[in-house]
């Protein structure tokens, strides 16, 4: 069988995910002030990174679809938005799990939490549009526009901890501009987790893209068949 990019992503995920789990639960030292709960940070941050990457890719693919009107860009945008949505949901869940013992509440209307939740709502709307709208070019064009407009929320999320008074920690780059991970093992663990979640998401994206490409091809074949039948019916 010919090796594919998807198989490479799957293999990387199979190696990196157990490695990341080992490093998060065994290798990395427990953070002094927050205790064991802080370890969720090594899943939370990579999930956020992958979600932003997915939504960013969806917007770029949307722009290419509007300009070039090629179905492949629409499929890439859709698949990327789905993967982004999955990991954005995980960001909100892991954030809530961390917030309960640290802040004493599952949720608070903090600026970063609110802007992230708005992003989630925007892409929930995007996916509903895809699910409820008909399979046609107009819906694909509208979805591309929504993806482009929605992605403007991401810079707002990134700078929200510096723009407004917020209780969300700024760990990677603190408000004073330094990086907040004192122990080098913390940085190593975060790097491996980032790679693991990235490989996993790339594999999921690849699988979904293949399904969507097959679906698009099927629609194209059906359309061609209908055209051929119409021509055949019209022939004397």
């Amino acid at each position: 069988m010919r090796p594919s990019l998807g198989a490479a992503f799957a293999a990387a995920g199979c190696v990196l995910v157990p490695a990341a789990l080992f490093m998060v639960f065994v290798y990395v030292p427990t953070e002094a002030s927050q205790g064991i709960v802080q370890r969720i940070f090594y899943f939370h941050v990579p999930c956020a990174w992958v979600a932003f990457l997915g939504f960013g890719l969806s917007a770029v693919a949307g722009a290419f679809y509007l300009f070039f009107a090629q179905q492949v860009w629409d499929d890439i945008g859709y698949a990327a938005a789905e993967v982004g949505m999955l990991f954005c949901t995980l960001v909100l869940i892991t954030g809530s799990l961390w917030a309960k013992p640290i802040w004493g509440t599952w949720w608070t209307w903090d600026s970063r939490l609110t802007t992230t939740f708005i992003l989630w709502l925007l892409y929930a709307g995007y996916l509903l549009l895809r699910a409820m709208g008909e399979e046609n070019e107009q819906v694909a064009r509208l979805a591309a526009v929504v993806a482009i407009v929605a992605v403007l929320d991401i810079p707002l999320i990134v700078i929200s901890v510096r723009l407004w008074r917020t209780i969300h920690p700024a760990v990677l780059v603190t408000r004073s501009g330094e990086h907040g991970l004192e122990d080098p093992r913390m940085l190593q663990t975060l790097a491996v987790s980032m790679l693991a979640i990235s490989a996993l998401s790339a594999w999921l994206f690849w699988l979904r893209l293949k399904t969507l490409r097959a679906k698009s091809r099927l629609f194209e074949l059906r359309r061609m068949l209908a055209t051929a039948q119409a021509i055949g019916d019209g022939a004397p």
Binding site: T114, I118, L121, L122, A124, G125, Y126, L128, L129, M132, G133, E134, Q138, V139, R141, L142, V146, V149, A150, L156
Partner: peptide
Amino acid sequence: ITSRLRAGEMLLALLTAPLYVP
């Protein structure tokens, strides 16, 4: 576009309201 679709008004609300939150 949503006005041409089935359940278009609901989709319009779903897409517009989150963007309008700020």
